[in-house]
């Protein structure tokens, strides 16, 4: 449990673990409740780190989750670094241990793309590889004990830290929206006017039904990025929540240590499956959606 000096209730502990380190612009007139009284944000607002969920909410859209962003980009850089190293080492000779392992991942992604996507597009396979490995690495952060990094950072003065980027809907939806934009781009590029027809003359092929068709198709289209992003977010958030609850169980007394430890181990082992599966699902759905965008009926 994070020992923040004074004693915390379990709900405070959980809320603390679910709060991002947010940097943003507080609107003018917002009252900040600090240890040394109440400050009112002056005219024009102020850019600062949020202390607590209320301030983060007040920042609205003009805020950024520093922890999510840094972990996400950091893991992306690790992905690029690892695979660039492999790309440099890879030759037609006998592959060594690490190259072999990474080539297996590349080969697996390549096969999945070839099975699902039948068009010709040089973007799809690298996109799928990036999604798979990056999402996997982000999910993998979930297996690090929940208190370890936030607590260590708290000792050096960072008040909040969420180290699993994929438990932040901004991160998952950011990727889902990116995929959605690609879907729209390729739909228009490949189908042209056929895309409009698909949206208006399906499933009822009659001019009178155009509004109904359009409504249904647009809802169906919008459901794709939402299901993509929220599925990953939901799974990871729930997994993280259970880790936090198990961690909170440790504080319930000596008698709870052993069951909590067993639960922790059990859930972590099960979670290895979940994080891999979620990364795989995100990748496969991306390929499927883009494949649908390429199919001209």
């Amino acid at each position: 449990m994070a020992a923040s000096g004074e004693t915390q209730t379990v709900s405070e502990y959980i809320v603390h673990h679910l709060t991002n380190l947010t940097y943003g612009k507080l609107p003018a007139g917002f009252e900040r409740h600090g240890a040394d009284g109440v400050h009112v944000v002056p005219e024009g607002g102020v850019w600062t780190f949020a202390h607590g969920g209320a301030e983060a909410s007040a920042m609205g859209f003009t805020a950024i989750h520093v922890d999510s962003m840094l972990w996400s980009i950091g893991l992306g850089v690790i992905f690029c670094w690892l695979f660039t190293r492999v790309a440099k080492k890879a030759s037609s000779g006998v592959p060594s241990g690490m190259v072999n392992a990474f080539e297996m991942i590349v080969g697996f992604v390549d096969n999945t793309v070839k099975d699902t996507f039948h068009g010709h597009n040089k973007l799809i396979a690298p996109l799928a590889l990036t999604i798979f490995v990056w999402v996997f690495l982000m999910n993998l952060m979930d297996l690090i004990p929940v208190d370890l990094v936030p607590h260590l950072l708290m000792l050096v003065g960072v008040p909040y830290q969420k180290i699993v980027p994929s438990t932040d809907p901004n991160i998952t939806m950011g990727m889902a929206v990116g995929v959605f934009i690609l879907m729209l781009y390729y739909s228009i590029k490949v189908k042209g006017f056929g895309f409009v027809k698909e949206l208006t003359l399906n499933p009822f092929n009659h001019p009178l039904f155009i509004p109904i068709n359009l409504f249904m198709e647009v809802v169906g289209l919008l459901a794709k990025p939402f299901s993509l992003g929220l599925r990953l977010f939901g799974n990871m958030y729930a997994g993280e929540m259970i880790f936090i609850l198990i961690a909170a169980l440790f504080s319930a007394g000596i008698a709870w240590m052993v069951p909590a430890g067993l639960l922790q181990i059990g859930w972590a082992i099960f979670h290895i499956l979940v994080i891999t599966l979620q990364a795989f699902i995100f990748m496969v759905l991306t390929i499927v959606y883009l494949s649908m965008a390429h199919e001209d009926h």
Binding site: G60, F61, A63, T84, A87, K122, L127, N170, G178
Partner: peptide
């Protein structure tokens, strides 16, 4: 909260995919 992180992640996503497409995928494959 949905905020600028969404945009930031989209930009990072584009950059990493581009990087992978340019420097990772072709040599390995």
């Amino acid at each position: 909260n949905i905020n600028l992180t969404l945009i930031g992640q989209m930009v990072a996503f584009v950059i990493f995919v581009w990087f992978c497409m340019k420097y990772v995928w072709p040599p390995i494959l």
